[in-house]
Amino acid sequence: MRPDEPGRGDDQQPDTRPYLCIPYWTDPITDGGSWDDGSRRGLPAQVLSWACPSIHAGDYTPGRPLEVTVEVRNSGGGNAAAAATVVVYWADPTVGFAKPTFFAAATVAAPPDRTTPATATTATMTATIPATAPAHVCLLAVVSHPQDRAGKAADPINDRHWAQRNLMAVAAAPGAPALPRFAVANPRTEPATFQLRAGAVDERRARAAAQATGLELADTGFRVRILDADGAGVAGPGTVAATAVDLEGLERRDFQLLAEVDGDLAAGTAVVLEVLLVTGNGEGDVVGSLAVQLVAEER
C-alpha cells in the first residue's frame, strides 16, 4: 500500500506516482478539514458510506439500459495526468461485496490536484442490468492504475480505490411492515466472525440521506428485526437489532429485515435505517453498509 500522505514516498522524497480515490466528500466535513483525497479510510463516521456522490446513475429500471459516470481524484505528486481504469459492478442489495457482477469499464485521465479539489469524470458507461434483477440494486466502482492498484477485496469503506451507492427504498405503514431482502457477504478471503447490525441513523446523517433522494426526514418511531432467509427471527425487535454471523471467505448469505413504523408516513418523507457488517463483536472494522429508506405506500 502507498504511504498515508499523498505525494510522499517511503523515504519522504517527492513521489510522482498517482494517488487515486473515488471521493466521498468535496466540502470539508470538519472545521479546518479538506476535501476527500483518499487518505482517510476507513471512512469517517460523518460520511454516508452507502451513498458516494461521485457515482452518478440515471433512472434505473431492470431490463433497460442504465447510464453511469464516476468521478475520480488524483492527489499524487506528479505533474502529468494518470490514465486510470474505472470498473463498475452491480449487485442485489447486499451488506459487503463478495462477487459483484461486472457492469462496464472506462479509462479516465486524472490530473494531479494538490492545491485545489478537482475531479476527472469518466465517459458515460451504458449497460443493461437483467430484467430479473430486483427493483433496487447496488452500484460498486473501483479505480486503479499500474502504479496505484486497488486492493482485491471489494471494500468501499476501507479502500480509497473503491466506492458504492447502496441504498434501497421500501414501502411501510402501521400494520404493514416492510420486509426487504438483502444479502450479507464477507469481502475478504479469510473466514471471520462479524456482527450484523441494523437500526437507526443519527438525525444529521438520516436527514442528509433523505435529502439526497429528494425526501424529508419523517418524524415517527420504528422497530426492526433481522430475519434469516426463511423468515425466522435472529435479532430484535428494537430500534437496533444485532446478531453474530460466521462467514467463510467470500461467503454470501441471505437475510431479511422486518421494519415497522409507529405512525403514517407522509408522501415525500422517509425513515432511514442503516445495516452494517462489522468485524469481530461489533467493535472492529465496518466492511459493509446498506441504507434502507422506509417510505409511504403509493396510493
Rank of each mutant, 00 (worst) to 15 (best):
K152G: 09
K152I: 10
K152M: 04
A153F: 06
D159W: 00
H161F: 02
H161S: 11
W162V: 09
Q164T: 14
Q164M: 09
L167E: 14
M168L: 13
M168H: 02
A169M: 07
V170L: 11
V170A: 12
A171N: 13
A172C: 00
P174Y: 00
A176D: 08
P177Y: 02
L179R: 08
P180R: 03
R181S: 14
R181D: 13
V184T: 02
N186H: 03
N186G: 01
P187Q: 00
R188P: 05
R188C: 04
E190W: 03
P191Y: 05
A192T: 06
F194W: 03
Q195K: 13
L196M: 09
R197F: 02
A198M: 05
G199W: 04
A200Y: 04
D202L: 07
D202I: 02
R204Y: 00
R205Y: 01
R207H: 02
A208E: 14
A209N: 08
A210D: 06
Q211M: 07
Q211I: 02
A212H: 10
A212V: 01
T213D: 15
G214P: 07
G214E: 09
L215R: 15
E216K: 00
L217Q: 04
A218L: 00
D219V: 09
D219E: 14
T220C: 12
G221M: 01
F222W: 07
F222S: 14
R223W: 08
R223S: 12
R223M: 11
V224D: 00
V224Y: 00
V224K: 02
I226F: 08
I226M: 03
D228E: 06
G231H: 05
G236K: 01
P237I: 10
T239I: 01
A241M: 05
T243R: 13
A244P: 09
A244T: 15
D246L: 06
D246G: 02
E248Q: 12
L250R: 15
E251N: 12
R252F: 09
R253G: 00
D254S: 10
L257Y: 03
L258N: 11
L258S: 13
A259C: 06
V261H: 03
D262R: 05
D264K: 14
L265I: 12
L265V: 11
A267D: 13
G268S: 11
T269K: 10
A270C: 03
A270T: 01
V271T: 14
V272F: 04
V272M: 11
L273G: 12
L273N: 13
E274L: 04
E274A: 13
E274R: 05
V275S: 03
L276Q: 14
L277R: 10
L277S: 10
V278R: 03
V278F: 03
T279E: 15
T279C: 06
G280M: 08
G280K: 11
N281H: 12
D285H: 08
D285E: 15
V286L: 09
V287A: 04
S289W: 01
S289A: 14
A291P: 01
V292F: 07
V292S: 02
V292K: 03
Q293H: 14
Q293C: 12
